[in-house]
Design a protein around this nucleic acid. Structure first.
Lengths: 183, 183
DNA sequence: TAATTATAGAACAAGTTGTTCGGAAATGCT
DNA sequence: AGCATTTCCGAACAACTTGTTCTATAATTA
């Protein structure tokens, strides 16, 4: 039922997209260049994706899928049952770094806010479970996304563990401050 | 020396851009449509702006200029000398709302991250002066931008003063938490 | 093997972009 | 008011990009 050629074609396109993202950026990239780089026919391409934008969506989705995966699911990780924010954030940072070139191109090229949007969604869904109200989760989501984006923009300089620790420390302050007043 | 026609043309283009942003969104908008809506010749347009993207930059700049202006500079505002975060945030929110249609189009259309980028810069510059280290300012910047963006996305539902108050309350928690450890 | 399904590649219409050019009009200065 | 300068209009244009359609070919499945 599942034809190998489909998966093969889509993978080739997404790979080519990621490569071109690094070389030319999103805005300058053309469909024709994707076709050439992926060795895929024009008609074939449009049978699988909705233009350049469609490829980006697929690419972002595939990246976020890994970034947002629970740290517990990783091999060699201690499963304690409780949610370890620092570990989870560090995990996400490391996965973002795996696609550093493409992700940076998506962010600095300013071509699109697709990646940040997906990151926001995923982060909010997680953080909401560790907060009392929606706004607190929004607040922490913004801070986390900014942390990641800035990290990418500054060439992944800081150590993931250290950065995750810095974030967690301030986030702790937020969650504690809320207890003082219930507004 | 300063020719009125220049300012007149540029204003007409930016106004038309803001209108079209609301009607069609950034991605679908075409240069030709801007020309028609602004009643500006094609050659004239390209003599003033670097394409559609250039117009957006000018538009965003003009909006941010107001948003980031100090609340103290507004008429009828009490100048106390110390920095009132809640008042400043509320001020910014109100100015964003002045361009609600266009700003929402820029955000939900996902056409570009230009506006958010400019907002980040302006917010960071301000917040940095109220924090000890860079990361704390980054953290608060992210939270603030998310607050604004979410506010726009949810149709400016909450009251600006209330929202500014919510932000300030959590931000206070962040700044106090930092005092415990200096890392 | 036979039927089905995906692909390559070319050709195509439609639309968009940015530039160039000559004449017309507005503006600034005296 | 008069004149030189600057800006504007509008059309025409080449170059490029997009998305669709078609046919023959190749791969996959059952």
């Amino acid at each position: 039922m599942a034809d190998r050629r489909v998966a093969r074609t889509e993978a080739a396109v997404i790979d080519a997209f990621e490569r071109l993202l690094d070389e030319k950026g999103y805005a300058r990239m053309t469909v024709q260049e994707i076709l050439d780089a992926a060795n895929v026919g024009r008609a074939t391409f449009y049978a699988h994706f909705q233009g350049k934008e469609g490829v980006m969506e697929a690419f972002v989705e595939s990246v976020i899928e890994h970034v947002a995966a629970p740290a517990d699911a990783e091999p060699g990780h201690d499963f304690t049952g409780r949610w370890d924010m620092a570990a989870q954030v560090e995990h996400a940072l490391r996965h973002v770094a795996e696609h550093r070139h493409a992700v940076r191109a998506l962010l600095v090229g300013g071509g699109s806010s697709e990646f940040v949007g997906a990151l926001r969604e995923a982060a909010f869904a997680r953080l909401r479970q560790a907060t009392r109200d929606d706004y607190e989760a929004r607040f922490l989501t913004g801070a986390l996304v900014e942390t990641v984006v800035r990290w990418v923009e500054t060439d992944f300089n800081e150590d993931p563990r250290q950065l995750a620790s810095s974030y967690t420390a301030l986030a702790k302050g937020v969650r504690e401050s809320g207890h003082e007043q219930k507004a």
